[in-house]
Design a protein around this nucleic acid. Structure first.
Lengths: 120, 120
DNA sequence: CCTTGACTTAGAGTTAACTCCAGGTTGTAA
DNA sequence: TTACAACCTGGAGTTAACTCTAAGTCAAGG
């Protein structure tokens, strides 16, 4: 699978995919004889997982750390799980903050709808 | 109210408060004769509103635009409301993405808990 | 008065995460 | 076989949002 296809499928730009490989977030992707990237099924799944995590605000650094442990294999499962649990905690905190903002926004909009308030 | 107190109360750094004033997100705050900032109740409310919006990811640029309309006063209410509605839409979209990520994270963690999977 | 800590400014530096560029190679359709 | 689009690399540039620095002024306690 060519990089353009992966880009289209994942919604990440081609530059971003190359960037992710360069910094080690993606493993060195297989190449054709002439040096063109050839993503496999596993690469694709990883790209999509990363896409999802990044969309929720998980830092690249954390994902690199996570995949370093995956790479290491032999019983890093506890450490990996710890990372995921920690990130879930932070994600929940962000979601709670956003819910508060949403409530406030809803309230403000309602006020505008009722045209009660002119300035604020 | 001194900048240090506003900082403490709001959780924004002193530098950030000065930065917000510099770029026009906060209006020119009143000063003592010797030039020291003296935040009033309205400033404080605005700081807290901004803090809340920023925490949910609303761009500074949008908030500046919003307050420019507030400043303008005379029937910019429709435009203001439109901004808030648009930002609410985007916020809901982000929250939905985060919910997806949360689900995936929960699933992964569960897998680790059941120690079914060793690598992924 | 003197020190010390909080305040001021303009402007430079930082960080994360891309995004773009120049200059070169490859694959494919006419 | 010649265009021409898509690929490649290393490295520079961009963006948002701070964060820090230097050099100076101000306020309050001893």
């Amino acid at each position: 699978m060519k990089i353009s296809e992966v880009s289209e499928q994942s919604g990440l730009s081609i530059d971003t995919l190359r960037y992710y490989e360069k910094i080690g977030l993606l493993p060195a992707v297989n190449r054709t004889d002439s040096g063109i990237r050839n993503f496999n099924e596993l690469d694709l799944r990883r790209v999509n997982f990363i896409k999802c995590m990044r969309a929720a605000g998980l830092p690249i650094e954390v994902l690199i750390e996570y995949y370093a442990l995956v790479q290491q294999g032999d019983d890093t499962t506890e450490a990996r799980k710890a990372i995921l649990v920690e990130q879930r905690t932070q994600l929940l905190a962000r979601m709670a903050e956003m819910q508060e903002t949403l409530d406030l926004l809803n309230h403000k909009i309602e006020v505008y709808e009722n045209a009660v308030l002119k300035n604020d």
